[in-house]
Design a protein around this nucleic acid. Structure first.
Lengths: 172, 172
DNA sequence: GCCGATTATTTTAAGTGTCAAGCATTCGCA
DNA sequence: TGCGAATGCTTGACACTTAAAATAATCGGC
């Protein structure tokens, strides 16, 4: 999981102001603890999904993600659109798509006037495979979060939105 | 993950096609949304840390994680303990540690009575390198979460603990 | 003491991820 | 019209990740 090209990077100019303001404060330790707790939740869920996708469908998360992105676009996506949608590098998408082509789940054509552009589309087999997986995938998630109340889920949604705001307002 | 990427935009056109078609009970849809939101926060922070570790220290997150685990154990850890601590496979640790040895940041010895066991320890250079990185790493995290109030952080800690409970009570 | 089972670790194969370099193709502009 | 720059994509080198096979050392029962 590494950053894609599209993510804006912070200039060094923004750094000093922050370090003086926050460095070493008690808030800091708590931030680190929060991050580690968030990360462990995320990693546990993600690993389970990976294992189950492998066990049930003999597939991987990146493959599932590509199919999910294409399922929403009947007219297909170019390789660049796909890599932007998945926030992974262009070269990475090439490999994942190649393997999906080998399995006849997607097709790649160059029907555009611009012969550089490759368009990727789900095949019927790919669409059916994805829909089968997506249904079960949602059940896994629902099951894992079953012990949380609606109120907790609501509250967590709000706080994560706040976190995301904070992250995006404060790029490193 | 595609889900993480597209999640923030899901209030637009993309949502109905996927969710209304495959969503089950309302709680289910909400669980999936929660997971996607959590994942996107986690991924953004993680990718930033990776990029910054590379830019500032020419190192990677797995290497940093190994050093962090060893820093807490002056007597070192065996390869198995290390792989358990990092929650990654045994074979994976072998490669990361090998590269750290090449850089003289850790040492691996077989001083135990049991000659199968390899013990890994930080070198002085490794300890100093880690401490330098850890200080800045904590500042990055603190900076990214700076816009959140103490109360929000507290609340989020509680809710994530609840989530973790739910996940562990409900293995897929 | 010996031999099979267990344990610790490494190796291997395949997939995922990055960046940088390379190859076509197309665009922009003189 | 033609030529250098920009664009879309693939390839290659390297790191990380897993599961499974291989290797090596120890343990246990006889």
């Amino acid at each position: 999981m590494v950053f894609a090209v599209t993510e804006p990077k912070m200039s060094n100019a923004a750094k000093p102001a922050f370090f003086e303001k926050w460095g070493g404060a008690p808030h800091s330790k708590q931030s680190l603890r929060l991050w580690l707790r968030l990360l462990s939740c995320s990693m546990i869920v993600e690993k389970r999904i990976r294992v189950r996708l492998e066990e049930e469908f003999e597939t991987t998360l990146p493959r599932f993600d590509v199919l999910a992105a294409l399922e929403r676009e009947p007219d297909g996506l170019t390789m660049s659109q796909l890599s932007a949608a998945m926030m992974v590098s262009n070269g990475n998408v090439t490999g994942v798509v190649s393997r999906l082509i080998d399995d006849l789940l997607v097709v790649r054509t160059t029907e555009s006037a611009d012969k550089r552009v490759a368009t990727v589309r789900l095949t019927r087999k790919g669409r059916e495979a994805f829909q089968r997986m997506a249904r079960v995938h949602e059940e896994w998630i629902d099951h894992m979060f079953a012990a949380m109340s609606e109120a907790q889920v609501e509250q967590l949604m709000k706080l994560l939105a706040a976190m995301r705001h904070s992250i995006e307002e404060n790029p490193i």
